[in-house]
Design a protein around this nucleic acid. Sequence first.
DNA 1: TTGAAAGCGCTAACAG
DNA 2: CTGTTAGCGCTTTCAA
Lengths: 335, 335
Amino acid sequence: MSSMKDVAKIAGVSSSTVSRVLNDSMFVTETKKKRVKEAIAIVNYKPNLIAQSLRLKTTKNIGLIFPEISDPSFQMVVKYIEESASDRGLNLIVFSTHDDYKREAHAIDMFLRQKINGIIFSRVSDESQVRNITETSDTPVVVIDRVLTDEKIPNVVLNNYRAGEIAAKHLIDCGCRKIACLTGSPKIGLVSERFRGFRDTLQLNRIPFLNNLHFEGEFTYDTGVVAIEHFLKNSFDFDGVWGQNDQIAVGAISTLLRYKIRVPEDVSVIGMDNVSFASKFFPSITTIAQPYKQMCEKAFQFIDRISSGEIITHYQAVFEPFLIVRESTTSVRTE
Amino acid sequence: MSSMKDVAKIAGVSSSTVSRVLNDSMFVTETKKKRVKEAIAIVNYKPNLIAQSLRLKTTKNIGLIFPEISDPSFQMVVKYIEESASDRGLNLIVFSTHDDYKREAHAIDMFLRQKINGIIFSRVSDESQVRNITETSDTPVVVIDRVLTDEKIPNVVLNNYRAGEIAAKHLIDCGCRKIACLTGSPKIGLVSERFRGFRDTLQLNRIPFLNNLHFEGEFTYDTGVVAIEHFLKNSFDFDGVWGQNDQIAVGAISTLLRYKIRVPEDVSVIGMDNVSFASKFFPSITTIAQPYKQMCEKAFQFIDRISSGEIITHYQAVFEPFLIVRESTTSVRTE
DNA sequence: TTGAAAGCGCTAACAG
DNA sequence: CTGTTAGCGCTTTCAA
């Protein structure tokens, strides 16, 4: 690979001049400019990004840390983060932690040592290392999808309480009266947020919430399966189900269908996240969507602002969830 | 962030010594070694990877280029590539091209300028830039999932002909006699490979293949939908369907069910790739799996070997697909 | 065994 | 307007 020196030699100028032409940082005589450009073409010169980074103490890379790429919700995040990065001409380095703090710490370490341009975290746990970063380095950090108790870190988050409200309201509108809620791990803060909104809305509408029908699991397909089998085995009666994410909902629907219980005729099921298969399942899945695209873009805007030296005073950006009605719930039911 | 100089000063040694301790590249007196280690701890020193890369002309990064992260098959590839990278302590930079050659060229450009450690391509097109890389740079390149006509580039690929054979054989075993094939874009080489294996096997078993039931589309859900609606509208009779990937199969199954045609009782459907939702759909989807994990690992092994100076003489690594029987096909049918 | 010095490829004062 | 020089943080001869 040719370097600036080669170009300079061919063009008969100094390498500073080459640099100036490339970044047009100063006025360079037209003739020299032309000679330099020709030389660049001749040797097919491309500036070395590593050298540039070392000199400028900044890179064209941003890093994304998230728990698990197999998870469809995170796949959405990765997709949109990739797009926003690409729009800015930034490279995206991804790290999947598999919920292992060691791996998370390692990822952070690598990023910092690479002088990365910014770090985006998706769903860190409370024991996460994020705080340490913001204290010891000046790398911009944004947390997405999960609020931290420490409010000093810019974060973009969903109004999860509102999601619970929407789910409950829709199920009630469908005529459901015995409503189940299948949640993710109670260790994740947003799980209880969503649940609170859900239960509060039921109570507001004078629908009793039965603790029997509150199943705490993980954000997985298996949780949906296990929950429904548990309900059926114990003859718990229910006519509506909220799976706190679409995977739980799919597990629930599959299991219901397997037991010859019709969806939505016998039981309405609503999911959350609007992952890609939600519209492709049969029956297609009513769900509560997160504006992932906007949220990811917002995360980048935070990084842009911090990078340009702006002091963030308003750390939190809250986004509103919205309902997408499909086949797995029915509103034709008469009350 | 502290540098080697800081450590050296505190330890009262030269920065060369610090470097030697870090890489234990030479013998250093125990006392000095200890002093250096203490100093490192005091200032929480972490070597700057950028500087290291500039000096050593190599990085800890590898790049992955693929068409579309929304595609479940590529999500599998990304997942396993990430794991293999992580096992080697390498960072993964991802680039989604959206089938745009401009973007592909840009990605390559960025990677080369970053002195990346290796590039993995997934499903490149013939107009791709891959060849140019191998000619002008010494960056290791591996192609995965798609054969190139130019055999000089290491590549890992599936025996797609065999996949077609397996699909046809299984459908025949299920008692199907009027068998449809829904394919991806005929512009992609492996599509016709798969199709040839499929048709040859039918013929070998004296099952007629009707051109009516050969539907060429894209590797998408919509293709499955459109194909089945097309068949039904024209009253083409069929009792078995191979969707050349799981998305096509899901589109087909959903549409059949929507038209009250039972799967597998009336029509057996088999997909391909064993993407994550294949086992979660209802009915769960019989599919032809690719050993993605092994294929991705193999791609890395190619890079490892090239990096360590080995000359590759055997460019192609072929992997065998295998059948996973689930609910969407039935073998209980009597002939 | 260790330090001094050179240099990876680039940019940014600083002179001229 | 342009060339010289220094230096980003590291590794590696080369001497000592």
